[in-house]
């Protein structure tokens, strides 16, 4: 399963060793929700940013030396050269340690890995983004990418939900996209609070209400697996074919390059052959272990 731009990425290795991380500096930390933070970072060797090739939907392996390493998607857009970003929910030992970092901290980064979103498939199409919780992180990279090349794409719908208003990530982006007249932005929460005046309802249910047309459209969904499992049938009901539905999968990964073994679904490695798949591909997976 060849990775198309591998030769270019190989030139980006440190000392020809794919496991040796680049040193990067945390430049800014944003509290997204009570348990989720976005980190802006840049290479310690600043010149590397210009050379650093990545696509929306690709991921990196981030490490705190002495604690460990874990994969997170790059949540900023490749069209924005001033910085790179990743977004982390506090759930395990490394993510907790990341949340304890301050601006100026030096961490390890290697990547980019994985296939990324198929931009050529999205061109001249109506785009429907469906995201839940921190699942907006990889889509956000793609959304900014698309906005920065707005004339290449047609209508844009964004349906985004979280458990509660406090759990909505990237509120500053949501505001921007809401103001953008070329985007239909729909935000929802599972359960509102006193100040919440917006929609209330689960993402798949709201998607059905918004009912974007499947005509010349592609839907890109990311969120908790339970949300994804309920989203595909709704999309199908709206007339989307399996080829018109795209998602990005999450697995425990260590190496990021198809060697350490654990992220396989049947014969495919999510790190090497994914993490972005169409529902047509997912339907053909040998295994339901995703």
């Amino acid at each position: 399963m060849p990775v198309s731009d591998i030769s270019y990425r190989k030139r980006f290795l440190t000392k020809d060793n794919v496991y040796l991380p680049h040193l990067v500096i945390i430049e800014k930390i944003i509290d997204e929700t009570p348990d989720t933070r976005t980190f802006h970072f840049n290479f310690k060797d600043k010149g590397l940013r210009e050379e650093f090739p990545f696509k929306s939907g690709q991921f990196g392996e981030y490490s705190i030396f002495g604690i460990g390493e874990a994969p997170f998607c790059i949540s900023s857009s490749p069209t924005r050269y001033d910085r790179l970003e990743f977004t982390v929910r506090r759930v395990g030992s490394l993510t907790n340690a990341l949340h304890r970092l301050s601006v100026g901290a030096e961490i390890g980064f290697r990547g980019p890995y994985g296939n990324g979103f198929p931009l050529d498939l999205l061109e001249d199409k109506n785009l429907v983004f469906v995201a839940g919780g921190i699942g907006l992180a990889p889509l956000r990279s793609l959304i900014w990418n698309v906005i920065d090349n707005r004339d290449k794409y047609k209508n844009i719908d964004i349906i985004y939900g979280a458990r509660s208003p406090a759990d909505l990530c990237f509120k500053y982006d949501l505001k921007n996209w809401d103001k953008d007249k070329s985007i239909n932005m729909v935000t929802t929460v599972d359960k509102g609070d006193k100040t919440w005046k917006g929609r209330v309802g689960f993402v798949p249910q709201v998607l059905e209400e918004v009912a974007p047309s499947a005509d010349s459209a592609v839907a890109i969904a990311c969120g908790p697996s339970i949300m994804i499992r309920f989203t595909f049938p709704v999309l199908a009901k709206l007339g989307f074919t399996p080829e018109q539905m795209i998602t990005t999968l999450e697995k425990r990964m260590k190496c990021g390059i198809g060697k350490c073994g654990r992220c396989n679904i049947g014969n495919l490695y999510v790190c090497r052959d994914g993490p972005v798949f169409t529902y047509a591909q997912i339907k053909d997976f040998i295994s339901d272990e995703y």
Binding site: Y19, F65, C260, G261
Partner: peptide, 23 residues
């Protein structure tokens, strides 16, 4: 050939190592 990747740290000197892992 499956493996795990972990870190060890003693004071300010540390290492990243890989070790055998099993499905």
């Amino acid at each position: 050939y499956c493996f795990d990747i972990s870190d060890e740290l003693v004071k300010k000197e540390g290492s990243r190592f890989r070790s055998g892992d099993s499905c």
